[in-house]
């Protein structure tokens, strides 16, 4: 009997004292399943854009079976003269050949009057390229293909210089010699 009263008292007291109430946080926004995109399974689509897809879109950027006979300035692609550029750390050498590989013009940064370390700069490469291009234009070469070998400071500026000298560049080819099982290279430099 007593305990029953006590219990009722407790309940009443509890009710009186706890005037404020705590509630669990309620998410006001309803969950919309449509807003969450489906799991991506690595299929190429909107989210994944890689180099390959970019390249696929621009098909005509790369040579195909038919490109050998494409006409540039009235000449088929395979008969255009070639400008071989040998780029190294210390020098840049230009060789202008016809389609068969017969050398027509040869020019290097050293021949141009740059000496020692100045040979290996991009400015030297550019001026040499401009001079070579003007000489080539004098000989009647207007449209060329460019083949670059090696990495160095003159790599980009050489090609740009050829264009600035008045030659029309049809294509750029990289011909850097790289081997995956080379003979033993030279000893590493000591620092």
């Amino acid at each position: 009997m007593l305990s029953a009263i006590r219990n009722s008292l407790k309940v009443s007291i509890n009710n009186i004292v706890r005037t404020f109430q705590t509630t669990t946080p309620v998410a006001t926004e309803k969950f919309d399943h449509k807003r969450i995109p489906a799991d991506d399974e690595g299929v190429q689509g909107e989210k994944i854009i890689d180099l390959d897809s970019v390249l696929k879109a621009k098909q005509e950027l790369f040579p195909t079976a038919e490109s050998d006979n494409l006409l540039f300035d009235g000449t088929p692609y395979k008969d255009l003269s070639v400008c071989n550029i040998r780029v190294s750390h210390n020098n840049t050498i230009f060789t202008m050949t016809d389609a068969a590989g017969v050398v027509k013009l040869i020019r290097s940064c050293g021949m141009e009057g740059f000496k020692n370390t100045k040979k290996g700069t991009n400015i030297a490469a550019q001026t040499t390229a401009i001079n070579l291009a003007t000489k080539a234009v004098d000989r009647g070469i207007r449209t060329i293909r460019v083949r670059v070998r090696g990495l160095g400071p003159g790599r980009l500026s050489a090609i740009k210089g050829l264009q600035m000298g008045g030659l029309q560049i049809v294509s750029v080819t990289d011909n850097t010699r790289v081997s995956w099982n080379p003979p033993r290279p030279r000893k590493a430099k000591r620092l």
Partner: peptide
């Protein structure tokens, strides 16, 4: 094969882009 592998055609005289 040269001029097949690692070759890019220059479009609209834009050598920079090709390089």
């Amino acid at each position: 094969p040269s001029f097949i592998a690692r070759t890019v055609f220059v479009k609209n005289n834009n050598v920079d882009d090709a390089c």
